[in-house]
Write a protein that binds this DNA or RNA. Structure first.
Lengths: 109, 109
DNA sequence: CAGATATTCACCCTATAGGGTTAATATCTT
DNA sequence: AAGATATTAACCCTATAGGGTGAATATCTG
């Protein structure tokens, strides 16, 4: 998958409060689907779908142990998203037009 | 609007390559809808819709001058998004559980 | 083996994104 | 006033998000 599509998935996955809460929860370490679902007032199934979106974005990894699926964090895409945003921010504040060009070559749809 | 909803809009707006390219283009300064649409192979109307999404996220501001609508960048929501992501990142790397709690109070759906 | 538990699958529903086209509106220009 | 230009409005379409329910599957436990 190319960088723009990866960013689409990463930023899209972050654009939901339930998923952001799940990511925060994963700071404490691996957790099962049921554990991740516990704080929310939505069905286990819905949480399962949120997790699939986080997996597609590769923000979480899944490890099966018997009937339990253990989810853990994967910081890589988060780093890429932060990097993109920071480049835009510095670009907006500094107006470095050459950097702009480099960014656009990376990210023109 | 509360912080989680603002983040939803900001990150959602960033999760599209056309919109990211528009934001990059705005680094060079104000631009009309037509100018922003020029590089893309999609209808002016579609670009207009992308701009509306960027406006909803308050990433761009609109100023009307006669029949022209001049769009400009607004860094504030970008700062907030970067801040959220960086807090999660440091949380994931450092496991500062007290910071986690503070974040969650801010962002539980 | 029988039952409980963990998770997903297969559906249903509604709202929205992202694309399109054609028409309407507002403004500038001649 | 008439025509060109800039932008949005009002539709259509398809795909996906986000929620639900009930059934299927896999695994553990008595």
């Amino acid at each position: 998958m190319n960088a723009p599509a990866r960013l689409d998935h990463t930023l899209g996955a972050l654009a939901d409060p339930t998923r952001r809460a799940i990511l925060l929860r994963l700071s404490e370490g691996e957790a099962r689907v049921t554990d991740l679902a516990a704080p929310f007032d939505i069905s286990l199934n819905s949480v399962s779908k949120h997790i699939r979106i986080l997996e597609r974005a590769q923000l979480v990894r899944r490890r099966r142990v018997g009937r339990e699926h253990l989810l853990s964090r994967n910081p890589r895409p988060l780093d890429e998203a932060a990097e993109w945003i920071d480049r835009l921010r510095s670009h907006w504040s500094k107006r470095l037009d050459r950097l702009a060009k480099a960014l656009e070559e990376d990210d023109t749809p």
